[in-house]
Amino acid sequence: MSLEMEYDCPDCDNSQFWRTAYMEIHLGKKTKWRCSECGFGFIQIGDDITTAKA
């Protein structure tokens, strides 16, 4: 799994996110991502569940 990803931040114009935490849970792989500019973060579980605003 990559340590960075491209994602449009809803708080600033940055699109660079860094993985800050990762663990296996019963729902899948839980990953925490954080914007490198403003610190906005979200959690992603597998490919289907996310706390990021669309």
Rank of each mutant, 00 (worst) to 15 (best):
F40E: 03
I45P: 09
S36R: 14
Q44M: 11
W33R: 01
T20P: 04
F40N: 06
P10G: 05
D13I: 08
R19P: 04
I25M: 14
G39L: 03
G46F: 02
R34E: 14
G28E: 07
C38H: 07
R19Y: 00
T20Q: 10
A54M: 05
A52G: 02
S15M: 03
W18L: 14
E4V: 15
Q16T: 14
S15N: 15
W18H: 12
I25W: 04
T20R: 13
D47Y: 08
K29C: 03
C35V: 02
Y22P: 01
F17T: 02
G28W: 03
T51N: 05
M23F: 10
G39M: 04
A21C: 08
E24R: 15
S36D: 08
L27V: 10
Y7G: 00
A21M: 09
Q16P: 00
M23Y: 13
M1K: 10
G41A: 11
K30I: 01
E4M: 13
Q16H: 15
F17C: 04
Q16V: 13
D48W: 04
P10Y: 06
G28V: 05
A54I: 06
D8T: 06
I43E: 09
M23A: 10
R19G: 04
P10F: 06
R34H: 03
Y22V: 10
R34D: 01
Y7M: 11
M1L: 11
S36W: 01
C9A: 05
L27S: 15
R19N: 01
G39R: 08
A21Q: 13
Q44D: 04
R19C: 09
G41R: 04
E4H: 12
A52D: 01
K32C: 09
K29E: 06
W18K: 15
S36K: 14
I25F: 05
T31R: 12
T50P: 01
Q44R: 12
K29P: 09
D13H: 11
S15W: 03
T50K: 07
S2M: 10
D47H: 12
K30W: 07
C12D: 05
T20I: 13
Q44W: 00
G39W: 03
D8C: 04
A54F: 05
T50F: 01
I45K: 02
I25V: 14
E6T: 14
K32N: 10
F42W: 03
H26F: 10
C35A: 07
G39K: 07
Q44E: 14
